[in-house]
């Protein structure tokens, strides 16, 4: 496969803040690649370097075979970019926003209508509405349509689903899969760990460092210790008792369950159940479960540095 993005030894500082620390990775043609990490992880800085809007301090990056610093003029027209803060022109209508971005990129809506149709057709009933009056999910769709209108080779989407409800998020990823089917390569970032499963490959990123790069499946298979899910109506007490347990390794609330790993690795669940029963947690449900991306992310994260 052809790498369309190659990053090696990339670092970027803003004053004392190290936004990116020695990042290296490759992204291939027609991949749907995700950067997963919380706010402040360095996702936006990395995307701005890839879109040639920032120059790295150390290291190099190439996009579509061209260097992001020296060849920035050639790279820019080939990209479709949706910045994280992007909020369209609130005082222009849906259609006017589309026409504007089409004209800026030297094309028309009609010319590339086929490409944007699956998304834009959902917006067409509201095409005279001001973008400022659209809901979060609709805005994201319009922004995506605007980023696509010039038929870019590579889509770079910075947190396209942040602040959007679960349904709109799901629909948004469905659209990205359709676009991937059209042969477009897509790089997207998200703070929602569960969206990792939507990507072909993901990079887990935190505090400017890449924690892991792999397919979602392979990432979870690297989780070293057996993981147990426990359930009890009094979750708060359950968490506290598990923390007090002498072999306790990690305890995290996780949806309806509490995820637990033990210092000894594989354990006899009856022993744990006994301990809990004695300590006021009657009849907890305990079962071994498969870890997901979020378990992996937490196990890889370095603790917050206390000295700022």
């Amino acid at each position: 496969m052809n790498p369309i993005v190659q990053i090696s030894g990339l670092s970027k500082n803003f004053g004392k803040v190290e936004a990116l620390k020695d990042v290296s990775l490759e992204i291939f043609d027609n991949e749907l690649f995700g950067f997963i990490g919380p706010d402040g992880a360095g996702k936006t800085t990395l995307f701005r370097i890839l879109t040639t809007l920032l120059v790295p301090d150390i290291g190099s990056a190439s996009v579509l075979g061209m260097d992001v610093v020296s060849d920035y003029k050639k790279i820019r027209p080939l990209l479709g970019y949706m910045p994280g803060t992007f909020s369209l022109y609130q005082d222009l209508s849906v259609e006017e926003n589309m026409m504007f971005f089409a004209s800026v990129f030297g094309t028309t809506i009609e010319e590339n209508y086929d490409l944007v149709k699956p998304i834009y057709s959902q917006l067409e009933p509201f095409k005279d509405r001001y973008a400022g009056n659209l809901s979060g999910g609709m805005k994201q769709k319009l922004a995506l349509s605007c980023a696509l209108i010039h038929k870019p080779e590579l889509l770079i989407l910075d947190e396209p689903t942040t602040g959007v409800d679960a349904v709109s998020r799901k629909e948004f990823w469905e659209m990205l899969h359709v676009l991937k089917g059209e042969g477009i390569s897509i790089i997207a970032s998200t703070p929602y760990m569960d969206e990792a499963n939507q990507c072909d490959r993901v990079a887990l990123i935190d505090k400017g460092e890449i924690l892991n790069i792999n397919t979602p499946k392979n990432i979870t298979s690297e989780f070293k210790k057996p993981l147990y899910g426990l359930k009890h109506p009094n979750k708060y007490e359950l968490i506290n008792r598990l923390r007090d347990f002498e072999y306790s390794d990690s305890v995290h609330p996780f949806g309806e369950f509490v995820h637990y790993t033990d210092e000894r690795g594989k354990i006899d669940t009856d022993e744990l159940k006994n301990y809990l029963n004695v300590n006021g947690i009657r009849e907890p449900i305990i079962k071994q479960i498969d870890p997901d991306i979020e378990d992996m992310f937490m196990s890889l994260m370095k603790p917050e540095e206390m000295d700022v």
């Binding site: 706010d39 942040t162 968490i239 992310f297």
Partner: peptide, 17 residues
């Protein structure tokens, strides 16, 4: 919104408390 998974859980534990 936007915080890392560990902090998010610490936050929820505060909520339980």
């Amino acid at each position: 919104g936007g915080v890392d998974p560990v902090t998010r859980r610490q936050f929820w534990e505060r909520i339980y408390e």
